[in-house]
Amino acid sequence: MAKEYGSAAQWQEDLYQVLRHNGVTLFCYVPDGGHKTLINRSIEDPDVVSVPLTTEEEGVAMCAGCHLGGTKSVLLMQSSGVGNCVNMFALVKNGLFPFVTLITMRGEFGEMNPWQIPMGQGVQPVVEAMGLHCLRAMTPSEVVPTAQAAMDMAYKSNQGVAVLLTQKLIGAKPF
């Protein structure tokens, strides 16, 4: 049976826990089905600030402000949101701000909405062109180590890192 798009899977729970264990206390996001568990956990968690955004680029600047203030944060978005962030990534690169974004991918493995294809295909080249690292999680077992690697690269090496939660991992959204 095909898994339900965005359904709560164990890897999503584990992902929330690894981010919290790394000290992340602010989650900001433009919603996506694949991030449902992270968003809901962040809303329920009394020790976390959960911030819905009007556009993803707000989150890039907000995460930089969090670092000035001494808080660890992550930005959750769908692949289409990457295009809304491009110029704001200059803040991350120019200031060497630690930055982690978790991106649920559309427009790749099994995509049924043609409108998702162009930006989905553009995510990795765009992110890398702006000086961020791009790490992919293809299977449930890769999610936690990939998120841990991103947190280490960001907060120990002052890097910007995009973690792509691939469509093979999440499942294609049925229409």
Binding site: L26, M62, G65, C66, G69
Partner: peptide, 9 residues
């Protein structure tokens, strides 16, 4: 947005 992140922190 940067100021908002700083204020929340």
């Amino acid at each position: 947005a940067m100021g908002l992140g700083l204020a929340l922190s």
